[in-house]
Design a protein around this nucleic acid. Structure first.
Length: 193
DNA sequence: CAAGAGATCATCT
DNA sequence: GATGATCTCTTGA
């Protein structure tokens, strides 16, 4: 079943947890790609110094203030796109970053886009995942309850979950140590253990 | 294998 | 003008 809007309206930490074990689906003219989400991070509201919205409501963060269930895609380090899904009520800026996934379908296409044959190197990181799924800023603000990019619930039980601090947010002061990163335990496709 | 540098640009100061 | 919610390659043990 395709996940619908009410799921994303929940508390961000809850969404981040519950996305583990679900399937990210991308329909594209080149073909379909599907991967099982194994790593996520929560970015929660204007108080969270790691969250872009802590800097206020700007053109870039506008999407996070909008309706839940939309994609927040941005570009960092001059190279990489990051895929987030907006959560919680409209007006409260929060999102879940999809950090890693285990390729399931369209693996040949992912290999071509990534320029590697190693399955563990296709989507084991937020930038890699976006490259494997051909996700860029044209999808920013797009509805993830539509038919282009969405999450499917295959009915699997929620897997065993490990919690750690978020990656790459050393600047976030007292928020950097918060356990807002979630990964499927013992899974070989996460970005780092 | 671990550590470090370099790549490169949108966004905000 | 600085700086990132990163990745890859090179270096050296």
């Amino acid at each position: 079943m395709k996940i619908s809007r009410p799921f994303y309206e929940q508390n961000t930490l809850e969404v981040a947890r519950q996305l583990l074990g679900k399937y990210l689906v991308r329909r594209h003219p080149e073909g379909i790609t599907v991967a099982r989400i194994v790593e996520t991070e929560a970015y929660v509201g204007p108080e969270d110094k790691a969250c872009h919205a802590a800097r206020g409501r700007t053109a870039r963060t506008e999407v996070m203030f909008g309706e839940p269930g939309h994609a927040y895609v941005y570009f960092v380090y001059g190279f990489h796109h990051m895929l987030n899904i907006v959560t919680e009520r409209e007006g409260f800026p929060a999102a879940v970053l999809i950090r890693a996934a285990e390729p399931v379908r369209g693996i040949g296409l992912m290999k071509r886009r990534r320029g590697t044959d190693e399955p563990r190197n296709l989507a084991s990181g937020p930038g890699k995942l976006c490259q494997a799924f051909a996700i860029d800023r044209t999808l920013n603000g797009g509805d993830m309850c539509g038919n282009v990019l969405y999450v499917r619930d295959a009915g699997e039980p929620t897997p065993k979950i490990i919690t750690t601090p978020r990656i790459g947010v050393d600047y976030a002061r007292e928020w950097k140590a918060k356990p807002f990163r979630f990964l499927v335990g013992e899974n070989a496709f996460v970005s780092k253990p």
